[in-house]
């Protein structure tokens, strides 16, 4: 109903265009960088291996994507940590 009133009054509705723009922006970051899904998958597998040495992470919820701002492309990894590993292997510290 509110949506209808807004439409009659010509007010901005939900603005699905912002969603479209954001989706398009992210798709184009990947397209323009010509990064294949295989490459990202391989990177993700390697990341999991390395990080698992130090932390217990949620592999299923992990996300690795590219993003960009005005000038740069950034690799963005969101890696939920389940628990920190007890230091079974204390890193060798040289004094």
């Amino acid at each position: 109903m509110l949506d209808f009133i807004n439409r009659v009054l010509g007010r901005e509705s939900g603005g699905s265009k912002e969603i479209a723009k954001e989706r398009l922006r992210l798709v184009l970051v990947h397209d323009r960088a010509s990064v294949s899904p295989q490459l990202l998958q391989a990177l993700k597998t390697d990341l999991i291996q390395v990080i698992s040495k130090y932390m217990d992470i949620d592999e299923k919820a992990m996300e690795v994507t590219l993003d960009s701002n005005e000038r740069q492309v950034a690799l963005v990894a969101s890696i939920p940590v389940k628990s920190m590993k007890r230091a079974t292997r204390t890193p060798a510290v040289s004094i």
Binding site: R7, E12, S13, G15, S16, K17, E18, A20, L24, L28
Partner: peptide, 16 residues
């Protein structure tokens, strides 16, 4: 639809 914010505008597309 552009005015209602439900379609990308000319400027949006040209920018991208």
């Amino acid at each position: 639809m552009v005015r209602a914010g439900d379609m990308m505008s000319i400027e949006d597309i040209v920018d991208i």
